[in-house]
Amino acid sequence: MKDKFLDIYDQYFHDVYRYVFVKTGSRWDTEDLVSEIFRKAYEKFDGLRSEVNRKAWLMTISHNTVIDFYRAKKPVSVGDGLELMLPPYIEVDSLQQQEERICIEKSLNYLDSLDAEIIMLRYFSEMKCKEVGEVLGMSEANVRTKTSRIKKKLSILLSKCLGEQ
């Protein structure tokens, strides 16, 4: 059991970490939450059925743990818990990158919570539409359509933002 769990740990650690980081913006909170997520996963792993998609399962734990974290932190509704400020990034060198970063942050913050969640899972945790659907309780087709619409929205928002810079 331990080895199989460690395989999952190695395979998805970065995806979980980046997902949590992009949601909390705090490395300390990220490390607390990532540890919590893997601890929960470790405890539940034994009873996990073989047909369950491992990544979707792990990301569902991540998603719920972050929501719980924000629920505990301040009195907000579940939906509000998703509307989190995006963090500053670490290795930002050029001014152009800074501009892009600021615009991405602004644009993602502009999205509604579900749209932002879809983008975070798709692009910061590298999940397939089907897996995102499993985490958020949506159909794969729905996630695909929504992703396409959100990208359109983001392209407009980013164009506007970068044009203004």
Binding site: H14, Y17, P87, E100, R101, I104, Y123, F124, L158
Partner: peptide, 18 residues
Amino acid sequence: EEQVEEMLRHHKSLIVVD
């Protein structure tokens, strides 16, 4: 839209995992 994906992925890569 393709650039949006590219930009998101690029910014993902800027989050350095400890």
